[in-house]
Design a protein around this nucleic acid. Structure first.
Length: 281
DNA sequence: CTCCAGGTTCCGG
DNA sequence: CCGGAACATGGA
């Protein structure tokens, strides 16, 4: 056990941040959490308005948990309506974290048509079989395998990790990135629209997965992923009793109505709906 | 046994 | 542009 450092984290809700479905590999450990961020092991625990973190991971944690995001300023941009207000009360303190781009993108490629626990299982299997073992006493922690590592595998290898039809997509994406056909560093330098188009060149990456990657892995806080849950939220809370509301219409609405931090609004609506609309998985 | 899950892609109106 | 169907796997 290494020394611990205290980070001021006023207004943070660590638990909802790590369990809201933006990231899938953190393990509950005592009163806190243990997991890798890139190739750094982070052991973290919230005590009131402070975070206790292992000293060598302090800088990584500060960046990852986006402690520089001013939540109150973000909340001030949310649209004023009853649904948004309920979600905010329920999720206050939830932060959009800054995930390493590749592992975020890859994880959401494997998320298609899967429940959250399954996504977590796939992530763990991939890490355990093909990721680098990180040095941490008393626990086996693995980094997410890089695109070059996955590119060298076969589709059968990945299907054996229970990826199903997603195996071909993850493999294809890894190979395109490993070959330099798509460069994630370049994507990071592009405006939102162009970055999204570039990501959509990868197999298994459509609007939704691209927006998840942009929001959670590229810090594009306006990106608004529309999945089955958010589509229900939009249709039932914002288009109640409206006929013929197309996907395009929902996309246009969500792209403007929720403002410059639409991604935050999206995650709050998503988490709130999932936790309160019965049978929370 | 049937249904659905943080979708994408391809196909026919 | 829009609605349907196929695609793997596991849990309810």
């Amino acid at each position: 056990m290494t020394g611990r450092v205290v980070l001021p984290a006023d207004g943070l809700d660590l638990t909802s941040t790590l369990t809201c479905g933006q990231v899938f590999h953190w393990r509950s450990q005592g009163a806190g959490w243990l997991g890798p961020v890139g190739d750094t092991v982070v052991q973290i625990e919230q005590q009131g308005g402070e975070l206790l973190v292992n000293a060598e991971a302090a800088a990584v944690a500060r960046e990852y948990f986006a402690l520089d995001h001013s939540l109150e300023e973000i909340y001030a941009t949310f649209p004023v309506d009853e649904s948004m207000a309920r979600a905010l009360v329920f999720c206050r303190g939830l932060r959009i974290v800054r995930q390493p781009a590749w592992e975020c993108l890859a994880t959401f490629i494997t998320s298609a048509l899967k429940q959250v626990p399954h996504i977590a299982q796939i992530s763990h299997t991939l890490r355990q079989r093909y990721g680098q073992r990180l040095d941490w006493p008393g626990a086996e922690i693995f980094a997410y395998p890089g695109p070059e590592k996955l590119a060298a595998l076969t589709e059968a290898d990945l299907r054996d990790c229970k990826l199903g039809f997603r195996a071909k997509n993850l493999l294809g994406a890894a190979r395109m990135i490993a070959a330099g056909e798509v460069n994630l560093d370049h994507v990071a330098s592009l405006p939102d629209t162009e970055a999204r188009e570039e990501l959509c060149r990868l197999p298994g990456v459509g609007e939704k997965v691209a927006n998840c990657a942009l929001l959670f892995g590229f810090g594009r806080l306006a990106a608004f992923p529309i999945d089955v849950w958010i589509e229900r939220v939009l249709r039932e809370l914002y288009f109640r009793r409206k006929r013929n509301v197309t996907a395009r219409r929902l996309r246009e609405f969500s792209g403007t109505y929720f403002g410059p931090y639409g991604g935050y609004a999206q995650q709050y609506l998503f988490h709130h709906a999932r936790m309160t609309w019965k049978k929370a998985v």
